[in-house]
Amino acid sequence: MGAGAALGWWGVPLAVFAGAVRVSTPFLFVSLGEVVTEKSGRINLGLEGTLVMGAMAGYAVSYLSGSAWLGVLAAGLVGAALGALHAGICSLPRVNDIAVGIALMLFGTGLAFYLGKPFIAPKAPQLPSLPLGAWSSLPQIRAALSVNALFFVGLAAAPLLAWVFANTGLGLMIRMVGDSADGARAMGYNLNRVRLGATAFGGFMAGVGGSFLSLYYPGSWNEGLSSGQGITAVALVIFARWNPITCLWASLLFGGAGALGPALQSVGITSGYYLFNAAPYILTLLIMVATCTPERTLAGAPGELSITK
């Protein structure tokens, strides 16, 4: 890459930064949605399927309607429907949310591949980005600072969710249902209804995260679009200890790690490209090993979550 010459090695941190912003967006949306779901006491592992379904639906609607934003909305609604399906099945007696999640993950991806076949070839309108680097003459800086609008939505959503959890009846109700089913029941809350809402919201966010993949970066629809972002984001929620603000930092960290391979390639280091691409997964493992211990339970974990109970 010729442009790499102008910045030399500075291109690497710049590319990692740009990558962190760009790659983190789907992580951010999926994990913020999953925080809400898990705070209500359910875990939805099906978000990988929701993400792929969202990517497909977003791309298809964008192509058919000509509006990328309509695509994002459609992706969110499809995601919410899948979330509601998860919540609906889980509200039946003796149903395990993990098993249902895995089934929905396979169902979502399978359905997306089946319905998405006709949309692999055509080119759909893409989401616009904000040219925050217009002041610079260097193309790399301009490229790095060209940030998608959805990123800012996610950036605002994280503190907003934290505020909702701490300061509104809605947030306290979700925490109550997720932390003490008995307590919530004694207060007359309908657990299944609250969890339905929380899981549908989680699905909506995952769907929007998926539309980012097909409508901005990488910016096309194909079957290899997701590289496990949906499932990684679920792990990320645990790593972030169910805190929306920490989810934001964690998403940026994973995004940055994911951009390491392409960034090094841009300055000419091509050996070990695939190894560097594996950086997010290695990072996941390392973080989990470093922060988890069988000696104690996870701090901040909602009490009704099936994985911590």
Partner: peptide, 30 residues
């Protein structure tokens, strides 16, 4: 009202949050 044998206060929430949630059904800002 009843105080159950197994406590029904939400453990991770403060006493204030628990009492407020007991009294109000509003979903809006507190």
């Amino acid at each position: 009202g009843m105080v159950y044998q197994h406590f029904t206060l939400v453990p991770s929430m403060t006493v204030l949050e628990n009492l407020v949630m007991g009294g109000s059904r509003s979903l809006g800002r507190i």
